[in-house]
Simulated assay, not measured.
Amino acid sequence: MIYTVTFNPSLDYIVSVDNFTCGIVNRTTDEIIFPGGKGINVSMVLKNLGFENTALGFLAGFTGNRIQDLLEEKGVRADFISVEKGISRINVKLRSNEETEINGQGPAIAEADIKKLYEKLDTLSDGDILVLAGSIPDVMPGSMYMDIMRHLQNKDLKIVVDATKDLLVNVLQYHPFLIKPNNHELGEIFGVKIESKADVITYAKKMQEKGARNVLVSMAGDGAVLVAEDGSIFQSEAPKGKVVNSVGAGDSMVAGFIAGYLENGSYEKAFQMGVCTGSASAFSEELATKAEVIALLDSNKKLFIGEQ
């Protein structure tokens, strides 16, 4: 079974306004509401690709209830912990001449709530996949990802971590199956600017030296790189298409990689599936569907370069 953890889920309220102007009443031309959060995005894309999974995390209040309902409508199994104080956040994205985001804070997660999460994680079995994705709310320990991996280190799990800075670096000692920084995040860790795929490969290998097994690095319009634990390296240019919505593209890449790996047991196929799934989400108003991913896979075979 695949499990995802989202500590601070949201209702993403995306509004379009022609020529937004501060200080006056603006009328929307379009409105969309999605369940949001990096782990939740991974769960929804995995479901779209035909992989059952369970979304874990924390929900609160009427917004939490709506997130749960939306996930169930999309066929995602949601097993969240209900938090008593506060409400799950609403994130507002304003699309106009410029894009603007306002992100909410989220509920007050207590020690008792964290204990309940550990109880759920204790039920995971050898062979399961666990995805830890996104930021940690201020009300929780900043070491949360590391604490979870230490807690689970005696289980034979494949743990995927999509996080930044210390959240990511601190888990490397527990040998995550996959990490997925982008090139800017990778550079930030080492205090350098990374622009070329050659630089990505160099610093991805340094992440392996610190403990990561597989390092998947997204580079937006410049493609992606995978440095795998078996020594193979795969590169790709970005598939061609019109970017409609970049939110969730990185999470979709993670979901696609997992799906490709489970289908084929091949890092090469997992990489190709990840790249095309991330792009399919970027080219769509909503998250990637299986049909969209297959279409990109079929039309972009020449983009992928690999070396063993």
Rank of each mutant, 00 (worst) to 15 (best):
V192K: 14
N48D: 13
K197W: 06
T277V: 06
M253H: 01
S196D: 04
E286W: 12
V254T: 11
M44Y: 05
G241T: 09
Y174A: 07
E195K: 13
G278P: 05
V215W: 05
I114G: 00
L216H: 07
M149H: 05
S232T: 13
A220V: 04
L70I: 11
Q68E: 13
T164E: 15
N245P: 02
V217I: 12
G274L: 08
D79K: 08
L167W: 00
R27W: 09
S266P: 11
A259N: 03
G265I: 02
I33K: 13
I201H: 04
T6L: 08
I258Q: 01
E98F: 14
Q308V: 12
D166K: 15
E52T: 13
G36P: 08
G61E: 06
E84Y: 11
M207V: 12
Y174F: 15
A249W: 00
Q173I: 14
L46D: 04
D69L: 12
A228R: 07
V200N: 02
Y261F: 15
E263S: 10
S135D: 08
F190P: 09
A282P: 03
F177N: 09
G39E: 08
N245M: 02
K269L: 10
L168S: 08
N264I: 04
G39I: 08
E285V: 14
A112D: 15
V25F: 12
R77G: 01
I305K: 15
V25R: 14
P239A: 09
Y145T: 10
F58H: 02
V215F: 06
D113L: 10
R95S: 13
P107D: 00
V25I: 15
N182F: 03
G23I: 12
N103Q: 07
T123D: 10
P137D: 05
A270R: 07
H151R: 11
I179M: 03
L121K: 00
L168Q: 08
V227I: 12
A270F: 10
A110W: 07
E111V: 13
K193P: 04
Q153V: 10
F271Q: 06
L178T: 07
R77E: 10
T63W: 07
V293T: 11
K158C: 07
Y174C: 12
P181F: 02
I33L: 15
Y145F: 14
V92F: 10
I159R: 03
I129E: 05
V17N: 06
D156H: 14
D18R: 15
P239E: 09
G23K: 11
D79R: 04
L117V: 01
L296I: 03
S252L: 03
G86F: 05
V83Y: 11
V92E: 03
L121P: 06
D251Y: 01
L296D: 04
N26Q: 13
A282F: 10
V161A: 07
I201N: 04
K197Q: 15
E72C: 05
D156L: 11
V244C: 05
G86D: 06
K302D: 13
L178Y: 01
